[in-house]
């Protein structure tokens, strides 16, 4: 256990824990757009930057991203110092210049008092903030279907060769975890389309409810040793089936 001071309050944390984890546990509101617990911390959005110092640093302080900074004994953290707030404002201002139409960015910027960007609006800016949560989740799940492409200001998230991604199974994790809801997908009858790839959905053989994509089910069945038949009926029908089976057993017990 290590002891640290956060905004004047002494807090205990486990060794090796990242500062942001501790802040979240202590319910201290620090914004972060590129953080997701399912993947390794990344440090791209810089919004979770905090000011740190120690008693023996002779008044020197440093600015670190809390998502990546392992807690240390005696650390003195301020999460909303004037400089830190100014940095967050600047970052949100920069975001607003590039993603002026993203409701999520506008909301967060407004929370920090930025309503209109003070910079030049980036021509053809879209709502992708390049947090790479999508690609990192895709990697963690083992598909590696999409990645960042290019670099610098022109970087984007795209499937390989800008074509239909061969390794995508349509799990939708990329789209569902996108902080700005940028990744598009459509459901149409028994099909899901994402990244221009059309997936057939599994349909419950009893009630007709649609569940995950067939490719996802096949992947799980093949790589995770789950019988494919599990995927053939929906959760509700599974429950009914269980009720029926147990009902049968109970009725035998009653007879006995």
């Amino acid at each position: 256990m290590v002891n640290l001071t956060i905004n004047g309050r002494i807090v205990q944390a486990k060794e090796g824990e990242m500062l942001l984890t501790v802040l979240r546990r202590e319910k201290i509101d620090v914004p972060a757009l590129c953080h997701h617990e399912a993947v390794e911390p990344f440090g791209a959005c810089r919004l979770c930057t905090v000011e740190i110092t120690k008693e023996d640093w002779n008044g020197y302080s440093n600015y670190v991203t809390s998502c990546l900074y392992p807690v240390e004994e005696g650390l003195i953290v301020s999460t909303h110092s004037p400089k830190v707030n100014e940095l967050r404002k600047t970052i949100l201002d920069l975001f607003l210049a590039r993603h002026p139409n993203s409701p999520e960015i506008r909301q967060l910027a407004a929370d920090y008092g930025v309503f209109k960007t003070s910079y030049e609006t980036v021509v053809d800016g879209n709502n992708c903030i390049l947090c790479a949560i999508c690609t990192r989740i895709c990697d963690t799940m083992g598909f590696h279907a999409i990645s960042t492409v290019g670099r610098g200001h022109g970087k984007e998230v795209a499937p390989p060769l800008h074509q239909v991604p061969p390794d995508c199974v349509g799990c939708l994790a990329c789209a569902l975890n996108c902080p700005t809801h940028y990744i598009e997908y459509t459901f149409d009858n028994n099909y899901l389309t994402i990244w221009d790839k059309k997936f057939e959905l599994m349909v419950c053989s009893r009630c007709g409810k649609k569940t995950i994509t067939k490719e996802f089910a096949e992947y799980l069945s093949k790589h995770r040793d789950i019988p494919f038949s599990y995927f053939e009926i929906c959760d509700e029908c599974h429950r009914k089936e269980l009720a029926a089976t147990m009902g049968q057993i109970t009725s035998w017990e009653r007879e006995a």
Partner: peptide, 17 residues
């Protein structure tokens, strides 16, 4: 916090739980 909402477990549970 970790869940990515892919629905794999919903689809995989043989008891629909």
């Amino acid at each position: 916090d970790i869940c990515v909402h892919c629905m794999a477990c919903v689809a995989a549970c043989p008891f629909g739980c």
